[in-house]
Amino acid sequence: MKSMLNIKDLRASIEGKEILKGINLEVREGEVHAIMGPNGSGKSTLASLVAGKNFADVTSGSITYLGKNLFDLNPEERSKAGIFLGFQYPIEIPGVTMVNFLKTAVNEHRKHKGLEPLSAKDFLKLLREKKDLVEIDSKLTSRSVNAGFSGGEKKKNEIFQMAMLEPKLAILDETDSGLDIDALKIVANGVNKLKRKDNATIIITHYQRLLDYIIPDFVHVLFDGRIVKSGGKELAFELEEKGYQWIKNQVNGN
């Protein structure tokens, strides 16, 4: 299978403090990877760097995406190249309606592919289809982006945007946090329905429970800026059972 994302010896610091201490990760088409780890291990920093948020200084290493140096692309170019970040804390944008926001985004993607902008009618049709797919409340699209949405609505909205943009590589940053079991199922269903042979998903999570619904091909444990353990889906269960202390002890050699 074709390699999509290749992270090599990635080191990054925030205000002089090293957060990522040499990450190596390869994701190929059709794969689902889960990155698990305790708070502060560097999960969100890694996700943000792939999406193009420059709050950390990359001190060494590389990220290659479909053969391109990702650092040469700005966030919007990365999006149009097929990278999608599901935010841990989706941003509220009062005054900007979901419809306007999505229409602009979808048409920018189309422009990039050399396609005409969607007509109002076709856009609304697409909107309806994707709403049904991810089971989100149809009223959400007439509201301002995330403004006044509940925690669950915000997370579902991320999956909805993912459905609209059909990314090649989706990174879902703690999309399961703060969700009740029904919302969790809806989110997981959405991700599963959007899975194709030629796309890939990275699920970043603290807990194993999302992985009851989305079966990963690979599980990586991120601890103190390094991937300290990788394995199949059984690693998630092991981690859930033994807790992060088990990893800490292993790393510290106890």
């Binding site: 999406a51 966030p75 919007e76 990365r78 935010f87 941003i91 990039h112 945007q161």
Partner: peptide, 30 residues
């Protein structure tokens, strides 16, 4: 303009210039 909101829009493929315009017109909408 809110940098977080600008990044959010850019991460969806909206160019920075357009994202800024969208935010300004949202501001004026009131």
């Amino acid at each position: 303009l809110d940098d977080e909101a600008l990044f959010y829009m850019r991460s969806r493929g909206i160019p920075e210039k357009e994202a800024r315009l969208i935010m300004m017109s949202a501001f004026t909408h009131e």
